[in-house]
Design a protein around this nucleic acid. Structure first.
Lengths: 212, 212
DNA sequence: TACCAATCTGGTAGCGACTATCACTGAGGT
DNA sequence: ACCTCAGTGATAGTCGCTACCAGATTGGTA
């Protein structure tokens, strides 16, 4: 069999997935998350409710699906172990976010950026989405601790890593909320750096050029 | 009407509420959260399913109901505004937890402590409970920022407060998980202090006597 | 070209959380 | 003794989600 498994198959699958999610986010934004049923989304996307559940295990995943986690974990595993934990984690968060939003200067958002913003707004405003996203962050925390690769036998070291990772992710979440409140006008990586500095002190997170 | 509104009424209400929650936590621990229906809980508690929903809006609330949040917020509002944010928040978390578990020396847990531990274990092991609890922490974060009473007109100050509060709560959550893993053998307030120190550095959180 | 295997899709039936609505009981105060 | 109303219960219904089964399309093969 060819390397790419089934080019046409995967392409079609990705396309329907994208279409379903786009219609879902649109409907959720227009009518509200709770007021929109999965059947509504299926109908709008022109598929059966079954198909929606095939692509998105839960209704929340229609908004929350992303691959940010793997990016962060990879970057952490590749970072030098000599730096303090908070700096390693913080840098990975800032850098991977830079990759995601890949920076235009300071003007309007790309279409991708608009979509990200819409999803973020839903996530912040809807309790069910917010809760699940925070739990996704908790899973990401576990992945980060694993990626740090520190001595896993020492429970104190593991505890230290978990505390640092959870605090960093919390700061990042704060930055995400702020970014949404700004309607995406600020640079997200900068906001994350600022949140980390606010929580841990400017000296711990070697700030970008614009540090005071 | 008398001052205490309806002594007998409120007493009965509190009693059924306590009974329902006790049976719920017991059944969830025995059979698992997902494998136990609300009807099972109602039957065990000798009430109708309707009554369960009257006392606990959602199934998750059967485990997560607590009044820790108000305690923390009150303590923060009463703390001197001269200290750095992280220290104010951290101290409030440690102290209010001390009040909750009110310390026996180092031996067995009280019945209340055992109940707390059982709820905590369920919360950590069950995705739905974990997610909702993390969202409760998010609400607590808002309450903490309000209680800090800092300049609410300055968006940068508010951002700073949110970042600090979210990071502190994340560290506390890490301590809770560790405490459950230790089966409650450690002193929870000490663990919280250690988690704060691990995240922010020993100097920021003026440690208790046993600091290195 | 004809065939097979795997995948994608749709329909039906069902469970469980949760809500709305109505009716009944018993406590608290006049 | 009467009235009010919170607390409780039963019924029916919506919605998220999960088997289970059947048809259709695609990719590789004899």
């Amino acid at each position: 069999m060819p390397d790419q498994q089934s080019t046409l198959r995967a392409q079609r699958r990705a396309e329907t997935q994208r279409a379903i999610q786009a219609h879902a986010v649109r409907l959720f934004t227009e009518r509200g998350y709770d007021a929109t049923t999965v059947n509504d989304v299926a109908e709008a996307a022109g598929v059966s409710p079954m198909t929606v559940y095939r692509h998105f295990p839960t209704k929340e995943d229609l908004v929350l699906i992303d691959q940010h986690g793997q990016l962060v974990a990879d970057r952490i595993a590749a970072s030098p172990a000599t730096q303090p934990l908070v700096r390693r984690i913080g840098a990975a968060l800032v850098e991977s976010t830079t990759t995601l939003t890949d920076g235009r200067g300071g003007g309007d958002l790309s279409a991708n950026g608009q979509f990200l913003l819409a999803r973020l707004r839903l996530m912040i405003a809807t309790p069910a989405l917010r809760a699940k996203h925070l739990d996704n962050n908790y899973a990401l925390q576990q992945a980060i601790v694993t990626a740090l690769g520190d001595d896993t036998t020492d429970p104190d070291a593991a505890f230290h890593a978990h505390a640092a990772a959870s605090a960093c992710l919390a700061a990042m979440h704060t930055a995400l909320v702020r970014w949404a409140e700004d309607d995406g006008r600020s640079e997200l990586p900068d906001l994350i750096a600022k949140a980390l500095a606010a929580a841990f002190g400017d000296d711990v997170v070697q700030a970008r050029p614009d540090a005071p």
